[in-house]
Each structure stands twice: as structure tokens, then as C-alpha cells.
Amino acid sequence: MVIRNPRLRQAAQAAASTLVMLAAWQVASFFFPEYLFPPVQTIALRTFGIFSDPTLLLEVLSTAARIFGGLFGAFILGALLAVVIGRSPFIESYFTPVLVFLQGIPALSWVVIAIIWFHGIEFRILFIMVMTTLPAFTFQILDAYRSMSKDLFEMTMSFRPSGWMLFRVLIVPTIVPGILTAWKVNLGNAARVVVVAELVGATGGVGYQLLLQQQLFDMAGALAWTLVLVLFVLVVQTVIVALESWVLRYRPVSERVV
């Protein structure tokens, strides 16, 4: 059977590959002990258990709050830095090498630095999240700012706008696509980093729960918590994509698909 609707076809392909993966896992569970390959239904039940238990759900929500808090902090700082750097080549020559250097520091190093420097758990995690995602936010928004059309800038300037008006009518609409891309890219990174940060330096959240499952040698639990985090990222990604489609509705359909 040929599915003509591209969206339906894409959904069917995704469902098919997921089913194959689940089937392979289930087959493996017949041949290996449960602590290595727990059956799919056990993992599903444990995952459902996380969503139906308010205490466990709170752990998920606290991780989500840390991800959003870190991303939001990095976004605000990154946007400010990008606009400042974009407007002054002099400032750029000082800031860019620092940001490139920061980009090269592994997340785990930031975890160690945060533990040594700070006492408060939440502040440690916020610091780690901001430091690991700040360079990407800054560079992505800076790229969007630099891609601003010179023609549109001249045209807007011909009406002699104030600085604030120029920001509102030209700069913001120009950098919005870049901001949305930055959120999409950084969301996945943030989800990985927050788990590492919680694993080492927190007493709650998905990362801490993963640490508990490791100590209990509970593979089904570890997979269930991992699945919850992946589902969280997928849901937020879907929301961002929907927001992007709405914000960029002015583009021809072909460009939006790209």
C-alpha cells in the first residue's frame, strides 16, 4: 500500500522503525536475564508508574524546571551578548575568543567547577546549564543578527526610526528564526547536561533517579526514567516546531518545510 500524504507516510515510517526496535528488544529479553534486557511491558509499566505517582512526577517537573531555567538564563544572556557583539567589532574581538574557549569546556568540567565554587544545589545546576548552552545561544543569535538584510536596514533607516523602534520592527523579526533554531538545538544539549549535573550534584530530578536505579541495578527503572526525559524533549521540540510554523507563516510553504 502506498501512502500519498507525506505527513502520514512520515508518521508510518517512524512507527514502523519504533516497532522494529521494540520487537528486537523484546526478542533480546527472551534470551538475556531481566536485569540486562527487561521486557518491553515492564519498561512501559514503570514509565507509566512515573507519570501516575505525584512524587515521581515532581522529580520530572523539577528537572524540566532546571532545563527551562538554564535555557532561559542562557538565552537572555546570549541574546544580549549577540546584539552587543553584533553592533561593535571592537567588543567582538574581546568576547568571541572567550566564547569559543567556553564552548570547548566539557559539561563534566563545569559540574566539577560548580561543585567546588558553589554550595546551593539549584544555583550549581543553573550555572552549569547556562555555561554549557551560552556560547551556542550567542553564536546562533549573532549569526541571525548578521544575516539581517542591508537593504531592509537601509529602507527602515530611511524612515528615521528610534533605536527602540528599529529593534522592534527590524531586529526582532530578523533574529526570531535564529532564536527558535537555537532553542531547538540547545534543548537536546540541555537535557543531556542536566542529567549529568543532577547525577553528580543533586538530591532530586531525573539524573538523581538514574543514579538510584544504577545503585539498585534496576535496568527497567533506568530505561523508564530515560524514556521520560526523551518524551519530555520530544514534546517540547514539537511545541517549538509548532511555534516556529506559526511565527514563520509568512514564508512560502516550500521554505517552511526546508
Binding site: 537593504d151 531592509l152 537601509e154 527602515t156 524612515f159 523602534m165 520592527v169 527590524l170 514563520l248
Partner: peptide, 21 residues
């Protein structure tokens, strides 16, 4: 070239100068 802002409708493009004023 027309230099229209692609994210604004025809009406909103004409409104640009008035908005700035």
C-alpha cells in the same frame, strides 16, 4: 527593489513608516 519586509503583509508593509512616526 521593493524592499518589503517578508514577515509583514502588504498592509503592514505600508503601515511601517506610519508606525515609526
Amino acid at each position: 527593489s521593493d524592499r518589503l519586509m517578508p514577515w509583514r503583509s502588504a498592509l503592514d508593509n505600508v503601515l511601517l513608516g506610519l508606525q515609526i512616526l
